[in-house]
Design a protein around this nucleic acid. Sequence first.
DNA 1: GTTAGCACTCTATAAGAACGAGTGCTAATT
DNA 2: AATTAGCACTCGTTCTTATAGAGTGCTAAC
Lengths: 344, 344
Amino acid sequence: MLLTDRQVLILQVIVDDFIRSAQPIGSRSLSKKEEINFSSATIRNEMADLEDMGFIEKTHTSSGRIPSEKGYRFYVDNLLLPQKVNHSDMAAVKSIFAERIYELEKIVQKSAKILSEMTNYTSIVLGPAVKDNRLRKLQIVPLTKDTAIAIIVTDTGHVENRMFNFPTSVDPSDVEKMVNILNERLAGVPLTSLNSKIYKEIAMLLRQHISSYDTLLHSIADTLNLPSHEKVFFGGKTNILSQPEFNDVEKIRSLMNMIEHEDGLYQLIKQNPAGINVRIGTENDNSAMENCSLITATYAIGEEKLGTIAVLGPTRMEYSRVISLLQLISTDLSKVLTDLYQNK
Amino acid sequence: MLLTDRQVLILQVIVDDFIRSAQPIGSRSLSKKEEINFSSATIRNEMADLEDMGFIEKTHTSSGRIPSEKGYRFYVDNLLLPQKVNHSDMAAVKSIFAERIYELEKIVQKSAKILSEMTNYTSIVLGPAVKDNRLRKLQIVPLTKDTAIAIIVTDTGHVENRMFNFPTSVDPSDVEKMVNILNERLAGVPLTSLNSKIYKEIAMLLRQHISSYDTLLHSIADTLNLPSHEKVFFGGKTNILSQPEFNDVEKIRSLMNMIEHEDGLYQLIKQNPAGINVRIGTENDNSAMENCSLITATYAIGEEKLGTIAVLGPTRMEYSRVISLLQLISTDLSKVLTDLYQNK
DNA sequence: GTTAGCACTCTATAAGAACGAGTGCTAATT
DNA sequence: AATTAGCACTCGTTCTTATAGAGTGCTAAC
C-alpha cells in the first residue's frame, strides 16, 4: 500500500498539471513531461495501480486521470514544498498594513479583499470574537422621551450599541448614577460575564443608591446581550464562479446559496483549530462544497486566538500558493494586531 | 399608432401569460383563453401589427411572441390594475413591525428580508441617509496611550464610531473640556455641516480655553468625516438565480458581480425620485441588468425622504404584485418611523 | 521490469431526419 | 370590410448515425 517513488512522482505531476489545466491528463502527455523518463505504457501501469489505491480516478472509461480527494489529501500532506511568496504578492500583502489604520474590523476587511484579489478565489474572514473582549466603557445617551441608546466600548476598540425602551418614570440623575456605578464595577470584565456579574454583585449595590433601579437595570442588562457571532467578512464572493468547474447552473446556485446563508459557512470555518487547516471536498461535510476546498488560518493577539481567515476555492485549488499566502497574512495580521493592542 | 381595444386586450393577455409561464405564446393558445373570442387567424393579424409597433417580439421566425420592453412599459403604464394585497402577504408585511424594534437599521433590514421571501426576487434597501441626521452627542473614549475612539450619536439613534490617533502630549482634562464645548455648540447641527462649523465658529473659542488644542481638534474633525454612503441591505441575493431566464452561466456571473459590487446598484437605486418607480431592462442603463427590472419605492419620516426600498427581478416580473407590496411596505415603514422619531 | 503495438471504449462534434409549434398569406365566409 | 379556415413554410428540438480523436488495457516482444 505504500507508494513507490515513481508513483509519488506521477501523482505529483498529475495533481500539478490538473491544478493548472483543469483537464484530465493521459499517459502520453505525462510521458512528455521532462521530469518523466519512462514510456507511456509504464505510466499506464502505474496509473492503474494509483487508481486501484484510490489516488486518482477517471471521468469515464477511456479518459485520462484526475486526482481523487484522497489524491489531493496525499498531495497536501506530503508533496507540498514550502513555496516562496513572490515579490508582487509580498507587496500586495504588505499593502494591507500600509495605511495607518486603527480599526480592527477595517484591517480584517481589507485582508479579505486583498486575499481574494491575489488568489482569484473567495476569501472569508471571521472578525475578532467580540465575546472575549473586556468592557472599557458603558454609556447611555437619551434619545427620545422614552428611548435611549446604550453604547459599549471594549478594550479592543470595538463599539456596540443598542437602542432600548426607557421607563419614563426614571429620574435622569439616577441614570447618571447608575452608569457611573456600572462603569466603576464593570470596567475590565469580559463581555460574556457582564450579565451575571450585574445581577450577582451589583444589583444589591444599586438598590441602596437608586430608587426604581430595577426596570432601568433590566433594560440595560438586556441590552448587554451581545451578538454571539463574530462578524463574517467576504472578499470576491463571485470569484469562484469563474472557475471552470462551476459551469453548471445548479452548482452555482447551491454554492451561492451556501455563501449567502452565512451561518453554515461560519460553523464550517469556526471549528478549525489554530494554524493552517485544509479541508478538501467532502471533508467539509457539506453537499454544496463537494467540489470545493477550504483553507483556514487563525490569527491572534499575543497568544489569544482572535479570528480566522480562510480561502474557498475549487478542490483543484493552488494549495501551495494559497497556503503560503495565508501563512504570510495571518502572521502579519497577528503581529500588527499584537503591536496595536498588546501594550495598552 | 394608437392601439385598438382588441390589441390592448391581446397585449395584456400575452404579458400576463408570459409573466406566469416564461414561455412564448402563440395565436392558438391565445385563442383558447376565455377572455378571447376571436379566431387564431385574427389574433395572428393583430399580433403582426403589435409586433410592427414594437410591443411584442418573436424569439425566432416561427415562434410565439413575448413582450418587448416597450410592451412591458405599456403594460406597467396602462394595464396595471391596482391589485389588493392578499391576506397572507398582508400578514407577512405586518410581521415586520410586530416586534417592538427600536433600531432603524434593524427594521429596514427585516423589511428587505421579508420582501425577498414574499416575492422570491432580490430585494435591496437603502438605509436611512445618515448625512441628513443631526448630532445628538459626541463622546471620546481613550483606548490605549495614543489612540482613542470618537463616538457620534445622531438624533435618529444612529451611532458612528471611529478610532483615531491621539497626540500623547494632550492633557486629559483638556480633552474633556473640548468634548464639552463641542457638544454644547454642535448639538442639533446636521452632520454634513459639522466640519465647517467647527472650523468657522468653534476653533476660536477653543483656542482661548485649551492649550495645544489644534492637533487634537484636527484629529476629531477628521474623524467626523462620515461615510457618504447610505448602507445597502439585501434580501434573497440568490433568489433571482432561480428564475428560468438565468439558466446561462454568463448571465449569472455578470449579474452576481453587479450585485456584489454594490456601488453600481447603489447609484441605480439612489437616483430614483420619491414614490414608486419602475425601470425595465435597458432602462437601467446597465448591461448586466438587461434582463432585469428594478422597482423602487421611497420611505420617509414625515415629509423628509429617508431611504429607498427596491425589488430586483427579471423583466418578466410580477409587476402588479410587487408594486402593491412595495407600496404597502413603504407606507407602513414611513408611518412607523414617523411615529418613532417625529415627536421626540 | 519496460516498452511497442493494437484493439477497444468513450466523448465530442457534426450532419441528417422527423416532429411539432407557430407563422404569414390567400381565399372563402360573414 | 372584417373575420376565419386552410395550407405551405420556417425554425427549434430531439433523436439517430457517422466520424475523429484521445486514451486505456492487454499482450507480446525487448
